[in-house]
Simulated scan of single mutants.
Amino acid sequence: MKKLLNYLPGFSLALLLALVARFIQSLLPIPIVSDSLIALFLGILLNNFWKPSKEVTVGLTFTSKKILKFSIILLGASLSIETILTVGRLSLIVMLFTLVTCFGGGYFVGKWLGLDWKLSNMISAGTGICGGSAIAALAPAIDAEDKDIAYAMSATFLFDVIMIISFPIMGRALGLSDIAYGLWTGTAVNDTSSVVAAGYAFSEAAGDFATMVKLTRTLSIIPTVLIFSLINTYSNRKNSVTLKTKNEKVNLISLFPWFIIAFVGMSVINSMGFIPLPFSNALKLLSKFLMVSALAAIGMNTDFKEMRKSGLNPMIHGFIISTLVVIVAITVEFFMGIV
């Protein structure tokens, strides 16, 4: 109970920013900007004028990580398992092409820019899988240094912000349907929170679809981490690091995205008719509001001064790979006849 009370100041601030974002959106004559995007920028703006205390930061981190995942679980109560299986089938082909682009193209771009292979592949993982979550999962498996983790986080987040703004504009300019846009966003935008923001900025249906695609894409964390753990083990053979020692760094239980299991579980329960429609709709509204709160917390945790210290080459790497993924994803959709 005491631990939960420690989260209260930061969580309350995130909720307040979400309410303000909703209010600002309600004042707009046309909903051209989503409350998710407004909340994100409110958090960033506030963080530049007021640095939260440690007590507040704890709650903000809890909101940006745990509450976001909880909101996705609640979203499952309004979805059917048949829809999720359809999403997985559609997204698998696009996802395979984007992952090959990230890690294949990232290898050559990283060598060209003279980046360490660990930093290069963390940026690629953040771009191809799920932003900060993939970087955090991959870092201990390859013994990444703290500065490299910070570089990779900064490089992927910067382009997440750009994508949140540009994707709805490009989607409307291309005349994409909700399904096509949701699939494009879910496979090309990096972090889960950014997918949520960019998806719902286009439409509610696109946001739902993009979130489901993103959850399917997140599962690729496990094979990616295992593969790079083996690569790191091989590269460190001369340092007499045993395979057993390296395997201890890879905990499948901790790496597996548990919230996806819960998300699918809620969808199965809803598909079986155990959740009444009014209650399902209420859970979806609560889910969306908690997502907006999580985005506000993420904005509050963003310091542009620290990001500027990350240097130029990792940013160039992130820009090139992000751009390639955006182009590859929409091109594959075109040849699949989805666009």
Rank of each mutant, 00 (worst) to 15 (best):
A296V: 05
K3E: 15
M153P: 03
G131Q: 11
A155S: 05
S166G: 06
T233W: 15
L215D: 02
D143F: 03
L79W: 01
D178N: 11
S166M: 06
V241R: 07
F334A: 10
A155Y: 01
L99S: 00
P29D: 14
S254L: 15
W112H: 06
I221M: 10
F49G: 08
I227G: 05
V325L: 09
L27N: 04
P278W: 09
K54I: 07
N190I: 09
S220I: 10
S235Y: 11
A155C: 05
L85C: 13
S166D: 01
V33Y: 07
L46S: 01
G182E: 06
F228N: 08
S240P: 06
F202A: 09
S166K: 00
N47V: 02
L295E: 02
W258R: 14
L324N: 07
L74R: 11
I164N: 00
F279N: 04
S120M: 09
G43Q: 05
V325M: 06
E55I: 05
F23Y: 06
L174H: 04
G299P: 00
L17Y: 04
V213N: 12
Y200G: 06
V33W: 06
L8M: 10
S124C: 13
S280A: 15
G207W: 01
T187I: 04
N121P: 05
I24G: 02
L99R: 00
L42C: 07
L230W: 13
L85F: 14
N190A: 13
L85A: 14
K284H: 11
L15E: 12
I221Y: 03
I67C: 12
E82A: 15
N313M: 10
L285H: 05
L45T: 10
T83N: 07
K69D: 10
I275N: 00
S91P: 00
S293T: 09
T242V: 02
K238P: 01
L99M: 02
I38E: 01
S220P: 04
F256D: 08
A144M: 06
P9I: 03
K147F: 11
M212E: 09
P257W: 11
V292W: 00
M315P: 09
L295F: 10
I222F: 04
K249W: 14
M336K: 03
I73N: 01
Y234E: 12
G186Q: 10
A14R: 07
I338A: 01
S254Y: 15
I135L: 00
S240G: 10
G311H: 02
I227Y: 08
L312G: 04
N236M: 12
K2E: 07
S280R: 04
L158Y: 04
F335A: 01
P278L: 09
V268S: 13
L42G: 10
A18G: 15
S293Y: 04
R22M: 14
A141F: 09
S36Y: 15
K3H: 14
V195I: 13
L4C: 12
G128M: 02
G207P: 05
N270D: 09
W258D: 13
Y107A: 12
G43Y: 02
